[in-house]
């Protein structure tokens, strides 16, 4: 590499961004490229983007680890100290967030900038990873019957994923709760996963709605636990999905403010 490297100079190093993101550099070359990364803003940005792409390949290999691994790791961390960045004292980040649910009560921080209802994920990978985490979580701890039902649903989900225009989007609210959607505009179908939302109390249910301009929200179904909801009949004019908490059995029209809402323009809707 040294002769070629000198010949090609910086361009030679730039072209190593993809092999680096795939961990396809040998030890010495990897170190040399990492030194270069510290000085090259453009390369660093490219590596970040390409690494996120590579992570998609990782997620598709997810497999439940042996239960004994969990026990060993959780036991070990009790006696394993954490490494702090130099000069930074240990501090507890409590993650305490305002208890309001947007739409029901305004955020109790008058002088701050308005908090958006919904923060889109920074990258496609983060969005997709979320959808995957939702789908993956559902598969764990199943009885045989549940597994059969899950497999039937999985076929429906596979149908959506197989559409040529299937796209993912996701977002989270201020409390870290998330919604993930894989949708195909041509098939008019979507798979929706929620995570972090506790079961509503008193037999109430979470109902999914399709929001369209100039039309009443249309019910797409009720969520059961963490099970992904497969929705069909999505029209191209749809602008967003919303989830509300409704009395047992659902409602013909939303009766409460949405607990979460997600725009569909990035997945091919809203024409």
């Amino acid at each position: 590499m040294s002769v070629l490297g000198r010949l090609f100079g910086r361009e030679g190093l730039h072209s190593l961004a993809a092999p680096y993101a795939l961990d396809a550099l040998e030890g010495a070359e990897r170190l040399r490229f990492e030194r270069h990364l510290e000085r090259c803003e453009r390369c660093a940005a490219e590596v970040r983007a390409l690494s996120e792409d590579a992570v998609r390949l990782a997620c598709s290999a997810a497999t439940p680890p042996p239960p004994a691994l969990r026990d060993r790791v959780l036991t070990a961390i009790r006696t394993t100290p954490q490494e702090r960045p130099a000069g930074e004292p240990a501090r507890v980040r409590t993650g305490q967030l305002p208890p309001h649910v947007w739409g029901i009560q305004p955020p109790p921080r008058p002088r701050e900038r308005r908090v958006p209802l919904f923060v889109p994920f920074a990258t496609a990978t983060a969005a997709a990873a979320l959808v995957v985490a939702g789908l993956f979580a559902v598969q764990a701890h199943r009885t045989q019957d549940e597994l059969a039902a899950a497999q039937a649903r999985q076929r429906e989900i596979a149908h959506v994923l197989a559409a040529p225009d299937a796209r993912a989007t996701a977002g989270r609210d201020a409390q870290g709760r998330t919604i993930g959607v894989v949708a195909s505009a041509s098939a008019g179908r979507a798979v929706v996963t929620l995570s972090g939302y506790a079961e509503p109390p008193g037999g109430r249910v979470r109902q999914l709605w399709l929001m369209r301009p100039g039309a009443q929200p249309r019910s797409l179904g009720l969520f059961e636990g963490d099970t992904p909801l497969v929705a069909s009949g999505l029209t191209r004019s749809a602008t967003s999905l919303a989830v509300t908490v409704e009395p047992d059995g659902g409602s013909p029209r939303p009766t409460t403010q949405p607990i979460v809402q997600l725009a569909l323009n990035s997945v091919g809707f809203g024409e």
Binding site: R56, L57, C59, S60, A61, A62, T63, P64, V132, L135, F136, Q139, A140, L147, A150, Q151, Q154, I157, A158, L161, A162, A166, V182
Partner: peptide
């Protein structure tokens, strides 16, 4: 069974 969905998508 576990990773079929994402796997199919990536494939």
């Amino acid at each position: 069974v576990e990773a079929g969905l994402e796997r199919e998508w990536v494939r």
